[in-house]
Protein backbone atom coordinates (compact mmCIF):
# COMPACT_ATOMS: atom_id res chain seq x y z
CA UNK A 1 0.00 0.00 0.00
CA UNK A 2 1.65 3.24 -1.13
CA UNK A 3 0.72 6.90 -1.02
CA UNK A 4 -0.36 6.99 -4.67
CA UNK A 5 -2.81 4.12 -4.09
CA UNK A 6 -4.30 5.90 -1.07
CA UNK A 7 -4.64 9.14 -3.05
CA UNK A 8 -6.42 7.27 -5.80
CA UNK A 9 -8.80 5.70 -3.24
CA UNK A 10 -9.43 9.17 -1.79
CA UNK A 11 -10.23 10.44 -5.27
CA UNK A 12 -12.68 7.57 -5.84
CA UNK A 13 -14.24 8.20 -2.41
CA UNK A 14 -14.46 11.97 -3.00
CA UNK A 15 -12.49 12.87 0.12
CA UNK A 16 -9.59 15.30 -0.23
CA UNK A 17 -6.41 14.15 1.47
CA UNK A 18 -2.94 15.60 2.09
CA UNK A 19 0.29 13.71 1.38
CA UNK A 20 0.99 13.51 5.07
CA UNK A 21 -2.42 11.97 5.85
CA UNK A 22 -2.08 9.60 2.91
CA UNK A 23 1.15 8.29 4.37
CA UNK A 24 -0.40 7.61 7.77
CA UNK A 25 -3.48 6.00 6.16
CA UNK A 26 -1.24 3.78 4.00
CA UNK A 27 0.45 2.46 7.11
CA UNK A 28 -2.83 1.72 8.92
CA UNK A 29 -4.50 0.13 5.91
CA UNK A 30 -1.48 -2.11 5.33
CA UNK A 31 -1.78 -3.35 8.91
CA UNK A 32 -5.49 -4.12 8.57
CA UNK A 33 -4.97 -5.82 5.18
CA UNK A 34 -2.23 -7.99 6.56
CA UNK A 35 -4.64 -9.06 9.34
CA UNK A 36 -7.51 -9.86 6.97
CA UNK A 37 -5.19 -11.71 4.54
CA UNK A 38 -5.60 -14.77 6.79
CA UNK A 39 -8.94 -15.51 5.08
CA UNK A 40 -7.07 -16.48 1.92
CA UNK A 41 -6.06 -19.76 3.59
CA UNK A 42 -9.39 -20.47 5.30
CA UNK A 43 -10.63 -24.03 4.63
CA UNK A 44 -14.08 -23.02 3.45
CA UNK A 45 -15.17 -26.37 1.97
CA UNK A 46 -18.42 -26.66 0.04
CA UNK A 47 -20.82 -23.88 0.98
CA UNK A 48 -23.49 -25.15 -1.41
CA UNK A 49 -26.11 -23.11 -3.20
CA UNK A 50 -28.78 -23.22 -0.52
CA UNK A 51 -30.55 -19.87 -0.31
CA UNK A 52 -29.98 -18.07 2.97
CA UNK A 53 -32.80 -16.45 4.90
CA UNK A 54 -30.52 -13.44 5.20
CA UNK A 55 -31.47 -11.92 1.89
CA UNK A 56 -33.30 -8.86 0.78
CA UNK A 57 -36.96 -9.80 0.47
CA UNK A 58 -38.23 -7.42 -2.16
CA UNK A 59 -41.89 -6.63 -2.27
CA UNK A 60 -44.04 -5.46 -5.16
CA UNK A 61 -44.04 -1.72 -5.68
CA UNK A 62 -47.78 -1.17 -5.37
CA UNK A 63 -49.92 1.90 -4.71
CA UNK A 64 -47.45 4.49 -6.00
CA UNK A 65 -47.36 7.83 -4.19
CA UNK A 66 -48.62 10.87 -6.10
CA UNK A 67 -45.75 12.89 -7.60
CA UNK A 68 -44.66 15.67 -5.30
CA UNK A 69 -46.26 14.16 -2.19
CA UNK A 70 -42.94 13.94 -0.31
CA UNK A 71 -41.12 16.84 -2.01
CA UNK A 72 -41.21 19.09 1.05
CA UNK A 73 -39.95 16.34 3.36
CA UNK A 74 -37.19 15.35 0.96
CA UNK A 75 -36.04 18.92 0.53
CA UNK A 76 -36.44 19.88 4.19
CA UNK A 77 -32.80 19.19 5.05
CA UNK A 78 -31.20 20.22 1.74
CA UNK A 79 -28.38 22.70 2.34
CA UNK A 80 -29.13 24.48 -0.94
CA UNK A 81 -32.37 24.40 -2.92
CA UNK A 82 -34.38 26.36 -5.47
CA UNK A 83 -37.96 25.91 -6.77
CA UNK A 84 -38.45 22.36 -5.42
CA UNK A 85 -35.04 21.21 -6.64
CA UNK A 86 -31.72 20.44 -4.99
CA UNK A 87 -29.22 23.06 -6.07
CA UNK A 88 -25.68 22.09 -7.05
CA UNK A 89 -22.76 24.05 -8.52
CA UNK A 90 -22.82 24.44 -12.30
CA UNK A 91 -21.42 21.25 -13.87
CA UNK A 92 -21.03 22.13 -17.57
Amino acid sequence: MDIETVKNLANLSKISITDQEAESVAKDLAQVLSYVDQIKNAPIGDVGTEKSLLNNNFREDTDPIETGFYTDVLLAEAPNKQDNYFKVPKIL
Binding site: E77, A78, P79, N80, F86, V88, P89, I91
Partner: peptide
Protein backbone atom coordinates in the same frame (compact mmCIF):
# COMPACT_ATOMS: atom_id res chain seq x y z
CA UNK B 1 -23.28 17.79 0.70
CA UNK B 2 -26.37 18.10 -1.51
CA UNK B 3 -29.38 16.27 -0.13
CA UNK B 4 -28.84 16.72 3.61
CA UNK B 5 -26.12 17.24 6.16
CA UNK B 6 -23.11 19.51 6.08
CA UNK B 7 -22.17 21.37 2.91
CA UNK B 8 -19.08 23.44 2.24
CA UNK B 9 -20.09 25.35 -0.88
CA UNK B 10 -17.76 25.58 -3.84
CA UNK B 11 -18.18 26.60 -7.47
CA UNK B 12 -16.95 23.16 -8.49
CA UNK B 13 -19.05 20.09 -7.61
CA UNK B 14 -16.17 17.62 -7.20
CA UNK B 15 -14.40 20.10 -4.98
CA UNK B 16 -17.57 20.55 -2.90
Amino acid sequence: SIRFGMSLPSNNLKNQ
